[in-house]
Measured scan of single mutants.
Amino acid sequence: MKVMIRKTATGHSAYVAKKDLEELIVEMENPALWGGKVTLANGWQLELPAMAADTPLPITVEARKL
């Protein structure tokens, strides 16, 4: 699914347009965010693609819901 990742004042957030859902990312498998699992505030887990740590945000990526 397409997910937009952006930086907020409190960390990172994910927006899933198909579900009209925006949630804070509360847990990251990798400190650089990319190439691992993230957990959203509502409990969803997404697998993000591997990208460079300095990838500019906001960005829309293809993520997989676990």
Score class of each variant (00 low, 15 high):
residue 34 W to D: 01
residue 53 A to N: 10
residue 57 L to Q: 02
residue 1 M to A: 05
residue 40 L to K: 01
residue 11 G to V: 03
residue 61 V to K: 01
residue 42 N to S: 08
residue 1 M to N: 04
residue 18 K to I: 15
residue 29 E to F: 05
residue 48 L to V: 03
residue 45 Q to V: 15
residue 59 I to L: 09
residue 48 L to K: 00
residue 28 M to K: 11
residue 62 E to Y: 15
residue 53 A to K: 10
residue 13 S to N: 06
residue 11 G to E: 02
residue 57 L to F: 13
residue 44 W to K: 00
residue 61 V to D: 00
residue 9 A to Q: 11
residue 64 R to I: 14
residue 41 A to C: 06
residue 34 W to P: 02
residue 11 G to F: 05
residue 54 D to I: 06
residue 1 M to H: 06
residue 15 Y to Q: 08
residue 10 T to H: 13
residue 58 P to N: 02
residue 1 M to E: 07
residue 58 P to G: 03
residue 65 K to E: 10
residue 40 L to P: 01
residue 13 S to F: 14
residue 9 A to K: 12
residue 12 H to A: 06
residue 25 I to D: 01
residue 50 A to Y: 14
residue 31 P to L: 09
residue 17 A to M: 14
residue 8 T to R: 08
residue 5 I to L: 05
residue 64 R to S: 08
residue 38 V to P: 00
residue 29 E to H: 04
residue 55 T to S: 05
residue 9 A to E: 12
residue 33 L to R: 03
residue 43 G to Q: 04
residue 42 N to Q: 00
residue 60 T to C: 12
residue 28 M to I: 08
residue 2 K to T: 14
residue 55 T to Q: 07
residue 52 A to K: 10
residue 50 A to P: 13
residue 7 K to E: 07
residue 41 A to R: 07
residue 12 H to V: 11
residue 36 G to M: 04
residue 8 T to P: 00
residue 6 R to Q: 10
residue 51 M to W: 05
residue 6 R to N: 09
residue 38 V to M: 03
residue 17 A to H: 14
residue 47 E to I: 14
residue 5 I to W: 02
residue 30 N to K: 11
residue 8 T to L: 09
residue 42 N to D: 02
residue 47 E to Y: 13
residue 46 L to A: 01
residue 43 G to V: 03
residue 48 L to H: 01
residue 46 L to K: 00
residue 20 D to P: 05
residue 35 G to M: 03
residue 25 I to L: 05
residue 14 A to F: 09
residue 2 K to L: 14
residue 64 R to G: 05
residue 23 E to F: 15
residue 35 G to L: 04
residue 58 P to R: 04
residue 4 M to T: 15
residue 14 A to D: 00
residue 13 S to Q: 09
residue 18 K to Q: 15
residue 53 A to V: 11
residue 57 L to M: 08
residue 51 M to G: 02
residue 44 W to E: 04
residue 53 A to S: 11
residue 58 P to Y: 06
residue 44 W to L: 07
residue 47 E to N: 07
residue 59 I to T: 07
residue 39 T to V: 11
residue 46 L to I: 11
